[in-house]
Computed example of a mutant assay.
Amino acid sequence: MREDLIGAEILDWYDAHARQLPWRVPPGSAERADPYRVWMSEIMLQQTTVAAVKAYFERFTTRWPTVGDLAAADDAAVMGEWAGLGYYARARNLLKCARVVVADHGGTFPRTEAELLTLPGIGPYTAAAIASIAFDEPAPVMDGNIERVMARLFAVEAPLPGSKPVLKDHATRLTPQSRPGDHAQALMDLGATICTPKSPACGICPVIEHCAARAAGIAAELPRKSPKKAKPVRFGYAYIARKPDGAILLETRPDRGLLGGMLAIPTSDWSDAPAEDPPVDTQWHDPDLEVRHTFTHFHLRMALRVASVAQDATPTRGAFVPLAQFSPKTLPTVFRKAFDLSRGVSVDGARRNG
């Protein structure tokens, strides 16, 4: 198989059909991609769709246009802007990385894949993406889209994740010395728009003549994946407490662990048999409502508890936040679900009509 010919055809296609994204420069442009914007986009795009990321990216880069601006930002402000995007360890690592870049690298991102790998929160994929897109290093970039393209192009039938090394070997041989960043983004676009997981549009693929899986009639079956284990279910309680003036009880979760450092509705622990752990001594009501949410490794089901407390009530943890200073948008999705669910409940726990 002529890797150089395939690479040239993919770049020709990209020159004509590249997606316009706020963190990109036009294909073949003399303008160099900003490593800060490349890094920001790649961190946000982990486990998240382009459509979901665009608005967050625009808000972050408007509010903090340089890595120095982000490094100097207040932690709570960054976590609040991230709310709703999920996978919150990314936001914590975003701050850590920005501060290391400023403190140890003079506010300039390292230029090589090896150096980028030393930064907090930057793994092999992100390091290769920054190195190739921002600094023209021919580092093979491997995300889900590119793995799928490689599996089909070279008819790799071994299932993921075991086949990852083989797929990377193919991608390495395919990566050109010239325009490696455009090549990587071309493969991303090819996988996102044509070589899609279901019903790939093989008829308009720029490399259909080279696709071994297409020739074998198995393109739609690849890449194969090893069976996933069923996600366990954990349980808990979510506590919504309000004062007469509308202030709501919130807490900041510990820095370490799931949703670390995020503003939250107080909850019990999440386990097979959680114990009730109300954050303030008062009469709690059970409206018989349940918050359901799915994380990467488990499903969560939390029973809702609501209470109206005295104006001078003092919680055992967290603090009451005045209604004028609170926006549900600053809550991670699981807690925003709890808050939204509580809106349909009266102070005595009864459900409101409608």
Score class of each variant (00 low, 15 high):
residue 2 R to Y: 01
residue 6 I to Q: 06
residue 11 L to K: 03
residue 13 W to E: 07
residue 13 W to D: 06
residue 24 R to H: 14
residue 25 V to A: 08
residue 35 P to M: 09
residue 36 Y to V: 06
residue 41 S to P: 01
residue 75 D to W: 00
residue 78 V to Y: 10
residue 80 G to Q: 09
residue 82 W to K: 05
residue 85 L to W: 10
residue 86 G to L: 10
residue 100 V to H: 01
residue 108 T to C: 12
residue 110 P to L: 12
residue 114 A to W: 02
residue 119 L to V: 12
residue 123 G to M: 14
residue 127 A to G: 04
residue 130 I to A: 11
residue 130 I to G: 11
residue 133 I to N: 12
residue 135 F to L: 11
residue 135 F to P: 10
residue 136 D to M: 11
residue 141 V to M: 11
residue 146 I to L: 13
residue 154 F to N: 08
residue 158 A to F: 01
residue 172 T to S: 13
residue 175 T to Q: 07
residue 175 T to R: 07
residue 190 L to M: 03
residue 191 G to A: 05
residue 193 T to F: 02
residue 197 P to R: 08
residue 203 G to L: 11
residue 208 I to D: 13
residue 208 I to S: 15
residue 211 C to V: 10
residue 219 A to K: 05
residue 222 L to S: 12
residue 223 P to N: 11
residue 227 P to D: 09
residue 227 P to K: 13
residue 230 A to Q: 14
residue 233 V to T: 14
residue 233 V to L: 13
residue 237 Y to Q: 04
residue 238 A to S: 14
residue 241 A to C: 07
residue 243 K to P: 01
residue 252 T to M: 02
residue 253 R to A: 06
residue 263 L to F: 00
residue 264 A to W: 04
residue 264 A to Q: 04
residue 266 P to L: 05
residue 271 S to H: 04
residue 272 D to N: 02
residue 272 D to W: 00
residue 278 P to H: 04
residue 286 D to I: 06
residue 287 P to V: 09
residue 296 T to M: 03
residue 300 L to D: 02
residue 300 L to I: 06
residue 304 L to Y: 05
residue 304 L to S: 05
residue 313 A to V: 06
residue 316 T to C: 01
residue 319 A to N: 02
residue 321 V to N: 02
residue 324 A to L: 07
residue 333 T to L: 11
residue 346 S to Q: 12
residue 349 G to T: 08
residue 351 R to C: 13
residue 351 R to N: 08
